[in-house]
Amino acid sequence: MTRSHRPGLGAFMFFSVAFMLGVYFTFAAVQGDYGLFRRVEIAAERDALARDMIQLSDQIAQMENLTRRLSDTYLDLDLLDQQARSVLGMIRADEIVIR
């Protein structure tokens, strides 16, 4: 008697489990917390934060310049005049205010 040899249930279960594990690890490598998509999101966030840092550095440099120009050792009279006009609402005697 010859019996046809067909794969048993054990082989089917082994390949099913192996396939499911492969699918799971592939999904985790692409979509997971440490996957490719998360890496792209982190890179985009890093670029946005770098742009913000450059903008803030420029603002700090501008504020340091204004602070230095109003210090006791270096007094910029034009800047002092501008600050007095904006903060105190002062005008000179030869100016006309139009509202």
Rank of each mutant, 00 (worst) to 15 (best):
E95Q: 15
Q31T: 08
E64T: 03
L80F: 11
D58M: 13
A18M: 12
M63E: 13
D58L: 14
Q55T: 08
S4T: 06
G35I: 02
V40G: 02
A61N: 13
P7Q: 13
F12N: 01
L9Q: 06
P7G: 03
A61Y: 03
E64C: 02
N65G: 07
T26R: 10
G35A: 05
S86I: 14
D72Q: 06
N65V: 11
M53Q: 12
D76R: 00
I96Q: 08
A43N: 03
L9R: 04
E45V: 10
F12D: 05
L77Q: 11
Q62L: 09
L88H: 11
A84Q: 04
D94M: 05
I96L: 14
R39K: 12
F15Y: 13
F12R: 08
Q62Y: 15
R3P: 01
S71F: 01
A50E: 15
R99Y: 14
Q83K: 13
D94N: 11
N65R: 14
E45S: 06
F37M: 04
R85V: 05
T73P: 00
D94V: 08
F15D: 04
D72Y: 08
D33G: 12
D33V: 09
M90D: 08
M63N: 10
D47R: 13
Q62C: 02
V17H: 02
L56D: 09
A93D: 12
R46M: 08
M1T: 09
R99M: 12
E45W: 07
L79E: 06
L66T: 02
F37C: 00
M20T: 14
L49E: 08
D81V: 03
R68M: 03
F15N: 07
P7K: 05
R85H: 10
L49G: 01
L66C: 01
A28M: 08
S71H: 03
V87M: 13
M53K: 13
F25D: 02
V40R: 11
T26D: 13
F12Q: 04
Q83E: 11
I54Q: 11
T73C: 01
L56Q: 13
R85A: 12
D72V: 02
D76W: 01
V40D: 10
R51P: 00
Q55R: 12
V23M: 12
Y74D: 10
E95D: 12
I98P: 00
I98T: 15
F25M: 06
S71I: 00
L79K: 01
Q83N: 07
A48E: 10
R51V: 14
A48H: 06
L36M: 15
S57Q: 15
T67K: 04
I60N: 13
G22I: 02
L75Y: 05
Y74G: 00
R85T: 09
E95S: 06
V30F: 15
I42C: 00
L56W: 13
T26G: 06
E64M: 09
R46L: 08
